[in-house]
Design a protein around this nucleic acid. Structure first.
Lengths: 197, 197
DNA sequence: ACAAAATTAGAACAAATGTTCTAATTTTAC
DNA sequence: GTAAAATTAGAACATTTGTTCTAATTTTGT
């Protein structure tokens, strides 16, 4: 692992554990350990580290969405493994989600990027829900209903981790299961109970 | 308005507008304007300001929940005015919701308080949903389903504002309407469509 | 009216932060 | 093997921060 990669990894872990407010470039350098000068040789500005980490997440997201596309879904629970992977990705970069508003006003570039990501994801989800309807997994959805479902999936997906940090504070498998079942429960009211093709 | 109240109001507005990271006690003092020394005469530590603001919100929440208790609900849309008031409260203290995880690890006292608030709210919501079922507004709910609904109401209620800041960025009435309709849509799948008493 | 208390301004301080600079060391290319 | 480039350590700097201190001014109670 190069120093650059090591910095990103250390930063990500410290950001996740201590938050972005109390994690300084000096802390990151000290815990590797390298000198502050060395760290700033690789990343001139602190925000460059955050930007690079966001890029990592974005890449992983895109890869995951590709894989989902070719999935054949015959029942709601076929989504569980997808939500599982989603959980890991969010959890590994949870500082981004916990501080998203702060970061996006600090680094406008990330805000723009994230909005475009959401736009694309919204389209993909629409297609995805339509496919589920066609397969008879979920009932027919009015446009407004479908939009509402997607909005709830976004909010729960992005902020379950914050809610959990504030309230139940599940860890490990318990956390993952609660995340998955909460996301699942956004869709479950719309499951088609009549046995049609 | 006393100086103390003025400080809290100014701090709240600056926190909402600029975030807690870039709002310092000096900024608050300068924008009133008073001297930094004067500000720290009224609030020895920065966190005392945040704690006082959280107390304000808590009081308003409790007052609102009392009022809701005596509401008679015969249809789902009777909840709209409740969600409306909720929106105003959250919006006026949105910095708390946007930085909740950060604040709660910075000031453990607030974390504890908020967890207890949620515990109480969870009980109230349970009773409330049961009442709605008895009145025939919503269908019978399994325990797990009811818990899931409440969890979604919490997550959407607490983080719609963050999601909106990141994505659509609605303002004014548009914002309020989207908040209300998103919260409403958590319950709408469970509305009782059969005409029973 | 006047003493005591409360409030205020503004200087002062120590600590921390992001970043830059300089000089040394290591790696790479040929 | 050696010159150039890349990497590293650590000192240095300017700025900002929360907070304290001192002295002045204003308000309050009687």
């Amino acid at each position: 692992m190069t120093t650059k990669e090591k910095i990103l990894d250390t930063a990500r872990i410290l950001f996740n554990e201590q938050g972005i407010r109390s994690t300084t470039t000096r802390h990151i350098a000290a815990s590797m350990p390298i000198s502050p000068g060395n760290l700033h040789y690789h990343f001139r500005h602190t925000e460059d580290i955050v930007i690079a980490l966001f890029e990592q997440l974005k890449k992983k997201y895109d890869k995951m969405m590709e894989e989902v596309q070719e999935l054949s879904l015959t029942q709601l629970d076929d989504l569980v493994p997808v939500f599982d992977i989603l959980y890991d990705q969010i959890n590994n970069y949870r500082f981004l989600f916990i501080h998203f508003v702060e970061i996006s006003s600090w680094i406008p570039e990330i805000k723009k990027d994230y909005q475009q990501l959401l736009l694309r994801r919204e389209e993909q989800f629409k297609n995805w829900l339509d496919a589920l309807t066609k397969q008879g997994v979920i009932v027919n959805l009015a446009d407004k209903t479908r939009e509402g479902i997607i909005k709830k999936l976004f909010i729960v997906g992005d902020f379950w981790i914050s809610h959990n940090a504030l309230y139940k504070q599940y860890t490990g498998d318990e956390a993952r299961q609660d995340f998955v079942s909460t996301l699942r429960s956004v869709l479950s009211p719309y499951v088609n109970t009549t046995k049609a093709k």
